[in-house]
């Protein structure tokens, strides 16, 4: 068979043409799109048949908790997050938590459960909730401590009854923003990212823990794209005991702090294209986050998608009041 676009010979097992990247006519039809109201994907049982753990009471297949498929958190018009299953995965293994301390400090935590691990959606939720709780404590905990405690929390997720060795694991990116909105402490493991998007000032603040970054150079040309993007750090059993990556970021002025998972940034891999999306979006923080998720879904939505956004208004406004409004 020949490629319909460039006439290169296409091996039947290829889903894409290696020359021009066009989809092969052989490519299996993509999985059906899912919506939150859908019941069992396998047997068509209604959503009421899905039990609390996400199993279908008819055919037994695991669909995941419908309540996790899509959820939004709106703290204020400047502080919100959207977490979505996407179109192709049967479960949403991302998780996001937001919190604000009484003194006005803001906490953002985004996690992406490692989908090759067991109970990935539990790992991401447990980790995010744990980190958020630790950082919301008015006594004041550091990002470093939150990462350590979350690591212990992921270890407590029991997947032993499943057999196998792939213990629950998740990525994590945390932002702890000072009450006066001048500084953010950002910590991460894995490839969930933080971005700063200000007027004419677009930066990726985190650096992925991936093969691509950590072993760039000789020998890497043999790795395929999936291997390049494999993460080298995570929370969970067997996690490398390296010092966590933590940076202190001086908020330069008005702009937006964005935390997201690869389900979003894979569709806008360079900072400029992602920033363009954010700047083109309008409305409250939750509306912008929703637009980013919609964009990723429109691009194919092959992975779970999470976007958490904290907006810093122009100097003239009182930071704390704005956030608390």
């Amino acid at each position: 068979m020949l490629c319909p676009q460039c006439d290169t010979e296409l091996p039947p097992e290829n889903r894409f043409c290696e020359e021009c990247g066009a989809a092969s006519p052989n490519a299996e039809s993509p999985a059906p799109e899912l919506s939150t109201e859908d019941g069992c994907i396998k047997c068509g049982a209604p959503v009421e048949s899905i039990d609390e753990e996400g199993y279908c009471a008819e055919c037994g297949f695991r669909r995941g908790k419908p309540s996790r498929d899509h959820f939004e958190i709106t703290f204020s018009e400047r502080f919100a997050a959207v977490c979505d299953r996407g179109l192709r995965h049967s479960r949403n293994e991302d998780f996001v938590c937001l919190a604000q301390q009484e003194n006005g400090m803001c906490v953002m935590v985004v996690c992406d459960g490692v989908s090759s691990s067991r109970r990935a959606e539990e790992a991401s939720q447990v980790a995010a909730e744990c980190a958020c709780k630790v950082l919301s404590d008015p006594a004041g905990s550091a990002v470093r401590e939150a990462l350590d405690i979350s690591q212990a929390a992921v270890l407590s997720v029991d997947a032993s009854s499943l057999g196998g060795h792939d213990d629950p694991a998740t990525t994590m990116v945390i932002a702890l923003v000072d009450a006066d909105g001048k500084r953010a402490s950002i910590g991460w493991v894995g490839d969930s990212r933080a971005y700063w998007i200000g007027p004419g000032d677009h930066r990726q603040l985190t650096r992925d823990h991936s093969w691509l970054n950590e072993f760039s150079g000789a020998g890497n040309e043999k790795l395929n794209s999936a291997q390049m993007h494999a993460i080298t750090r995570w929370l969970g059993r067997g996690a490398p005991e390296d010092e966590p990556s933590i940076i202190n970021f001086e908020i330069p002025g008005p702009g937006k702090l964005l935390l997201c998972t690869d389900g979003l940034w894979n569709y806008a891999p360079d900072t400029e294209s992602l920033a363009a999306l954010v700047e083109a979006a309008s409305g409250d923080a939750v509306e912008i986050a929703r637009e980013l998720v919609t964009f990723a879904r429109e691009q194919g939505g092959v992975d779970n998608i999470t976007a958490a956004l904290l907006e810093f208004p122009p100097e003239s406004e009182n930071q704390i009041d704005a956030i608390q409004s």
Binding site: K42, E53, Y55, C56, C59, G60, F61, R62, S90
Partner: peptide, 13 residues
């Protein structure tokens, strides 16, 4: 004995 699933599927057997 269950109906087999596809790769990545999880089932309550």
């Amino acid at each position: 004995e269950v109906k087999p699933g596809g790769v990545g599927d999880e089932m309550l057997a």
